[in-house]
Amino acid sequence: MITSDFVAYALRVGVKVPAPLPPSLVKERLVELMKSIAAECDKAGSTLIGHIKCMLDAGEKGFLAVSTIDASGHATVRGELRGGIDELNVIVNALLYGLDRCKVQEIVDSLARKHLSFEGGEMELEDLDEAHSHEPSSAPVLFDGIDHCHEHDDGRHDHC
């Protein structure tokens, strides 16, 4: 189901804060981030939101996985965090139709900066597709001479 207007964007957001954050605040910010990405992509002309999701793995302090599939303002939350969180390592995946990748990147990056900023904190954004595009990738394998993902690309993309 990868058509020419399908786009995938993956981002890692690293945040270090001077004082531990309450789990409820972290959860609230991640939910807002997912909902606002879906809403902004919809507003920008996305024809279909596939899945907007993120995961924060805080090791012994637990994890949170948050996702949404439309711009209705509903997000699903899995997992929980325990104790103060002083470092965030969040993976965001945006999979949708009808926008170009640069537009999705612009939306996701700017909303991540907005929703995951904390006073006195330091933030680092990493485009994971770009990071992985330097690694050797598997060559397409054709079974019976057929590329079953005829409309797939191979995950590579033009940089913005």
Partner: peptide
């Protein structure tokens, strides 16, 4: 199999 470069 997750589509993203880092699976969730």
């Amino acid at each position: 199999n997750d589509f993203g470069t880092v699976g969730i």
